[in-house]
Structures are given as C-alpha cells and as structure tokens.
C-alpha cells in the first residue's frame, strides 16, 4: 500500500503541495490527475525519495520514505517525467547498468534484462543507441528500467506524453499487463488514459486533493453539481471549475 498523509512542500513562497493525503491499496492502479503545475511531479518525486518533504508522511509498503528512503526505493520502480535516459548508451547496456545500480549482479542481472526486454517488447532495439530511438521506444525503455527488479510498486510520471496514437495504444496495453500484478500510481493530464488503465482516480488541483474514488463514482459525484458530466473529462473539468468557484467566492 502507498499512503500519503498531510504532505506539504513549498518552493520559496510557492506552495506546491498543501497537505495532501491519499492512499493506493495493494494491486490498485490509481490515476493521479491534475492540470500542469498542479503538484503531480512534486508529489511523485517525494514519494520516490528524490526530494525531501516539508511536512507530512509517506509510506510505501509500510516503509516510511523519509526515515528509510533506501528501503522504500528498493520496493519502487519509477518512470520520471520526460523519461531522462543516457543517450550515448545502448539499450541493453543501459538496462545492465541500471540492474547493477539496483543491486542485481551476474546471471540475475542478465535474466532481469532479458525479461524486461521481452515484456516491454524492446528486444529488437537492444543493441541500438538510446539517443537514436523514437519517443515511444524510449518510453518503453524507461518502463523496462522501472520493472527491472520486479518491484511491487510502480510510480509513472506522465508516461504517455508526446507519443503518437499507436504508441499510446501499445503503452496502454503494456500498462494494463503490468498493472495486473502491481500497485501503480500513474500521473497524467490525459483523462482518456485514466479511463482505460486505472481503477481509481486521485484529482489534484493547486497542490490539494479535490477528489478521490472510482471512475463511475467520480462522474456521479460531479454530476450532482451544476453541470451534467457524462465522461471523466467532463467530470474533471466540473470538479476543477467548482473548486475554482469556491476558492473565488
């Protein structure tokens, strides 16, 4: 289980996260949605132990990220926004390096690399240089890296940004496949992705959680307001507008 309680983060005077709390249960695939600048990436970076929090608590599989960041990172696979990779390395060489960093050696590392090359459908580019790959392939190399040690928890930050429709479809299928046996938080502002891939949705706006629940529940909740949404996208827009209206009032 991933649990976030009263998480706060400021950048100077700007409040990035204003005491957010949410929980993602075992085996759940949760969509973390919000507009650009809502605080999604900040929350994910804190969750993965990359960035310190100002206040609050984050636990991954029962391990407090603030107190035992290394222990929590051993349970997590993370795909950062924009999929930063080393462009000069070959795909297989990159995955071998990442396996070594994650504590796998020798035959176990070779086995893990072969497994993710196959499961992410990138075996055909294993000898290619990362910098020469298409965005879709780079995205899959990033997911392969996140899956290397077969972690029980995955944190994926905007995995479908910049992909063409065919690549998005392939990635969706891959996410559905890997989501069958893992707990995943998947940040995006593309709501069609969430409808297809996720079990639950967490909506963040201006550093606050404004809604959390299953997709039908969220649509129904927003429908009770002024608008009559029929899709998750409409529900999201209604939620954001209602929050803005309340804040403005």
């Amino acid at each position: 289980m991933i649990e976030v309680e009263g998480l706060r983060k400021r950048y100077g005077r700007t409040v990035a996260l204003d005491g957010i709390s949410f929980r993602v249960d075992e085996g759940e695939v949760a969509g973390f949605v919000g507009l650009n600048g809502a605080g999604k990436t900040t929350a994910m970076r804190i969750l993965c132990g990359f960035m310190p929090r100002d206040a609050g608590a984050v636990t991954v599989g029962g391990i407090d990220v603030g107190k035992n960041s290394l222990g929590a990172r051993r349970l997590l696979g993370y795909l950062p926004e924009g999929v930063p990779l080393y462009p000069e390395m070959r795909v297989e060489e990159f995955l071998r390096y990442r396996a070594g960093l994650k504590g796998l050696g020798g035959a176990r590392a070779r086995g893990a690399v072969a497994r993710v090359l196959a499961s992410c459908d990138i075996a055909d580019v294993a000898r290619r240089i990362v910098g020469q790959l298409s965005k879709g392939y780079r995205q899959r190399v990033g997911i392969a890296d996140a899956l290397l040690v077969d972690p029980p928890y995955l944190v994926l930050d905007e995995p479908t940004v910049g992909l063409d429709p065919l690549q998005v479809r392939r990635l969706r299928e891959l996410l559905k496949e890997i989501g069958a046996s893992r707990t995943i938080i998947f940040s995006t502002h593309i709501l069609a992705e969430v409808e297809v891939v996720c079990d639950t949705v967490i909506v963040i706006h201006r550093g606050r959680i404004i809604a959390r629940g299953g997709i039908p529940e969220l649509i129904a909740r927003a429908a009770a307001g002024a608008s009559r949404p029929a899709t998750l996208e409409e529900a999201f827009v209604a939620l954001v507008r209602d929050t803005e209206a309340r804040n403005g009032a």
Binding site: C48, G49, L70, Y78, P84, L85
Partner: peptide, 14 residues
C-alpha cells in the same frame, strides 16, 4: 541538466 539525476537518485543508491 538532463534530468537523469531523477533516475539515478530514485534507484536504491546512496
């Protein structure tokens, strides 16, 4: 600069 620090420091490495 390239953002690979995210990748590097979210691996279980000190």
């Amino acid at each position: 600069r390239s953002g690979t620090a995210d990748l590097l420091m979210t691996a279980p490495v000190r």
